[in-house]
Design a binder for these strands. Structure first.
Length: 471
RNA sequence: GGCGACGUACCCAAGUGGUUUAAGGGGAAGGUCUGCAAAACCUUUAUUCAUCGGUUCGAAUCCGAUCGUCGCCUCCA
């Protein structure tokens, strides 16, 4: 049974999709005005874990992620760089896709863009006005939160407290300081579309409502995003969508904890961020994915060098087993009963029960490492590598480490399959073995050291020397 | 000011009433292997869960207080 913590109810709930076997899922995507940072990457990668696990469970997942390509920040950036907002948006949209692929994130089913849904947005606003939830003030349309009785149900805020809070800006055009813009009339030079109210552009929140409803339906299963979106963004999405459609908007809300740096939220406005692109110069995608997987998606996570180094080393344990399997598969012998001594099904069950419990990736990682330890032990028990056991171990790793987590890869494992390079290395190894036999240790150490300089590490085993290429 | 989250070993981090006298990763120590190393693998590493009270047959887990950290209330994943 899959259980998900729902922000709306503040508790774990059994997950039952609206339509059997199918899941409609929406994650708030980027505003394409800059490269995204690793804090943003945390949301994308956590969504990726969740999506891949749901697919592993056999669900057909329709996964939509919006691209906000019209926004103040894009306009500002364009002005600052003497470009059109469209050029800025297109440039960073491409950059987004490049980086997401490098991070090993499976592309969403659809990436709706705000600028391609202006018609849907306008018709949703029209419905809101018709239903009495919105008003036009000199070409600006605002949502009237006093008309929506459940306003605050997601974030647990009450309207009076919010009004008292000193931080709500007074905007005289609004009837209530908490009302928010659905449509903004454009200033000269800004991107703008014709509408019944003014030549202008959509407000921030409405695009998500219009696009998610269009592509996933008026009611859909999962909506995820960063913790900071709970209020006001998601609160406003609920108000708009439910006021326009008269139906429950989203059934399960999940929110990602922040990536902190020096125990402070990493954010564009604080300037304490590192772009994902820059990060990938120093570390692999597998490292950051594993680093994220070791903390629950909802908990805050401090981004520190120590933690990344620790993740990087931990990953080697997985790689070593993959390397071991890849190398020994060729010379493996048939041992049909080799499976009986090692109960893989038990690990599969443990892995699933961890993931079924609100996508508990840290616990699932624990299962993975228990598995690795036991798999090594099981293999040690055989004088020659048993094919059936190797295949079963590989299968488990393929599903978990390589598949759902994307923190390891059999494709990238360096094989000792014949290639000129590998044969040359083998030749040097046999020279070294010969030198060792004759106790010419100076020569054998020379071969070892020189190969090490080339990134090839020799591993003297019991009766065979193997090698490993460092990437 | 309002609302909320969190505080578990040297570091990171699961566990939220008995199967846990607390998973897993890093680190450290020991071992196997080795000419020596390295790598790899194996083993060990918290009677204790911020502090103090309380509830309970039984708590890291529930309740209260205290201290500390962080977030939202403004754009933000």
């Amino acid at each position: 049974m899959l259980v998900i913590y729902n922000t709306l109810s503040k508790q774990k709930e059994e997950f039952i999709p609206l339509e059997k076997g199918k899941i409609k899922m929406y994650v708030c995507g980027p505003t394409v005005y800059d490269l995204f940072h690793i804090g943003n990457a945390r949301s994308f990668i956590n969504s990726d874990f969740i999506r891949k696990y749901l697919e592993y469970k056999g669900y057909e997942v329709s996964f939509a992620m919006n691209l906000t390509d019209v926004d103040d920040k894009i306009i500002n950036k364009a002005n600052a760089e003497n470009k059109t907002p469209r050029e800025v948006a297109e440039f960073f949209t491409r950059a987004f896709f490049d980086d997401i692929v490098k991070l090993g994130v499976k592309p969403a089913t659809i990436y709706p863009k705000a600028t391609e849904h202006i018609g849907d947005i306008i018709s949703m606003i029209e419905r809101l006005i018709q239903n009495g939830y919105a008003y036009n003030q000199d070409g600006n349309v605002f949502f009237d939160i006093s008309k929506f009785k459940n306003y605050g149900k997601l974030s647990g805020k009450n309207i009076d407290d919010l009004i008292e809070g000193a931080r709500v800006e007074i905007n005289t055009a609004k009837q209530n300081p908490l009302d928010f813009a659905l449509w903004k009339s454009a200033k000269p030079g800004e991107p703008a579309w014709e509408s019944p109210w003014s030549t202008g552009r959509p407000g921030w929140h409405i695009e998500c409502s219009a696009m998610s409803c269009k592509h996933l339906g008026d009611t859909f299963d999962i909506h995820a995003g960063g913790n900071d979106l709970i209020f006001p963004h998601h609160e406003n999405e609920i108000a708009q969508s439910e006021a326009a459609n008269g139906k429950t908007f989203v059934r399960y809300w999940l929110h990602f904890g922040f990536l902190n740096i020096n125990n402070e939220k990493m954010s564009k406005s604080l300037g304490n961020f590192q772009t994902a692109r820059d990060f990938l110069v120093h570390y692999s995608a597998e490292t950051i994915r594993f680093f994220f997987a070791q903390t629950h998606y909802g908990a805050p996570l401090n981004f520190a060098n120590e933690g990344l180094e620790s993740a990087k080393r931990g990953l080697q344990k997985i790689d070593n087993l993959i390397q071991r399997i890849t190398n020994s598969l060729e010379s493996a012998v048939d041992v049909p009963d080799s499976l009986s001594a090692f109960d893989i099904a038990q690990f599969r069950t443990a892995f699933e029960s961890a993931m079924d419990d609100d996508f508990n990736t840290p616990r699932a990682c624990g299962v993975l490492f228990d598995f690795i330890r036991d798999a090594n032990k099981a293999l040690d028990a055989y004088p020659a590598a048993p094919r059936q056991l190797l295949i079963a171990i590989k299968e488990f790793l393929d599903i978990t480490a390589a598949g759902i987590f994307g923190i390891a890869s059999f494709e990238q494992a360096n094989t000792n399959a014949p290639s000129l390079e590998n044969e040359l290395i083998e030749l040097l190894i046999s020279v070294r073995v010969e030198a060792k036999k004759q106790k010419q240790y100076q020569l054998s150490d020379f071969v070892r050291d020189e190969l090490a300089k080339l990134g090839i590490v020799l591993q003297d085993g019991k009766d065979k020397t193997t090698f490993k290429k460092l990437s």
